[in-house]
Design a protein around this nucleic acid. Sequence first.
DNA 1: ATGTGC
Length: 480
Amino acid sequence: MEVKKISDYIWEIPTTEKEGMLVPARIYATEKLLREMDAGVFEQVTNVACLPGIQKYAYCMPDGHWGYGFPIGGVAAFSKEDGVISPGGIGFDINCGMRLIRTDLTVGEVRPRIRELVNLLFEIVPAGVGSKGFVKLSVEEFKQVMVRGVDWCIEKGYGWEEDRERIEENGCIEGADPSKISEKAISRGIAQLGTLGSGNHYLEIQIATPDKIFDRAAAKALGIFENQALVMVHCGSRGFGHQVATDYLRVFDAAMRKYGITVRDRELVCAPFNSPEGQDYFKAMKCAANAAFANRQVIVHRLRQGFSRIFGRKPEDMGMHIIYDVAHNVAKLEMHEVDGVEKELVVHRKGSTRCFGPGRREVPEIYRNIGQPVIVGGSMETGSYLLVGTEKAMKETFGSTMHGSGRTMSRTKAKHEVKGSELKKKMEEAGIIVKAVSNSGLAEEAGFAYKDISEVVETMELAGISRKVVELKPIGNIKG
DNA sequence: ATGTGC
């Protein structure tokens, strides 16, 4: 495939490369990361460029890799009037996302208690496939969670009033409609509030590395200081979102025939955004997104309790404020400029993060002059980053950046490369105390199975899309 | 990612 170099960090595949491409495809990467990308990325991103109503470019971020229909690391914006919505552009785990919680504690206070802390958090935050949460809900209450998200949690005592504004969409996307949710999705999701899940989902105790605070002013505004302990949470909507995606893939199969849409790959199944089917999925997707925000909220509530038990102080006396919460698997209606005209677009981000620049009204007032916080999770061995969005991102990528490091090795291969028990020992020697539901699950997440997070983050920094604030290093990890 | 294949 012909890949044109636009800059040191942007590569373009022209519309002449594939029949039916409506816009060019753009990949953000260094030359090295581009070379390492699997062939699936090029195939998939150019397939996406063929979807009806796509605007400007089909994008892939530097952490991109092969996914269901769309690449993971993908961004695609569609016209609200004559574009589509596609579950494959959002992902099965609807509103999979990251949340970062600060503390006033230092590494000196936390490290001596880390094993105790990891053991307790593992006990009070259920993890693993099929795990059940501690919150018992009636069907009516679960529907309230779908509609009200974090607001419901705060009302029930699972959080603080201030938490709301420190979450993308304030933890509640308007317009969720539980009548668009199947019985099966309800039965899968009803007992899962406050659970971590499995795969690459985790809860991690991290330290703000002193020589890795890149922007002092932004760090201060975000409540970051040298040697500070923080907690990062990575999880989504569990079996509930998965079932919503499954349900609507089936609905959309029929809708495609009805509306005469053809796609290059069956996994790109979609429906016109304005069709009844498209709107039903959008409303159901919002239910799952709100349930995921609520899931992370209940987890935060429990980890505040856990810290309290270990350190003998109230969470509010330890400064356990949420820094921010980002969704990296979701579609949203947003205003963006296309050919000099402000338009409302259906922006799909799948394994990519919104990174709005300073001044946008969607950015919480407390952060409005530094830009939207972006939480990027690396592998459990390497570390993570807190970034902020830029004005340039608004112009170039519909205000979007990467979401993590991105896999380079299959789960199966990773498991053959290292034994979970050995990896655990190696991590503990390196100062990371880990407690996982399964050892084989741990091996799948080994650092060598992922791209170098620093290189991925640096790419978007040099491209001017997101700016580094601080690098965070793990000292404790709880894994499903 | 996922009651880890329908």
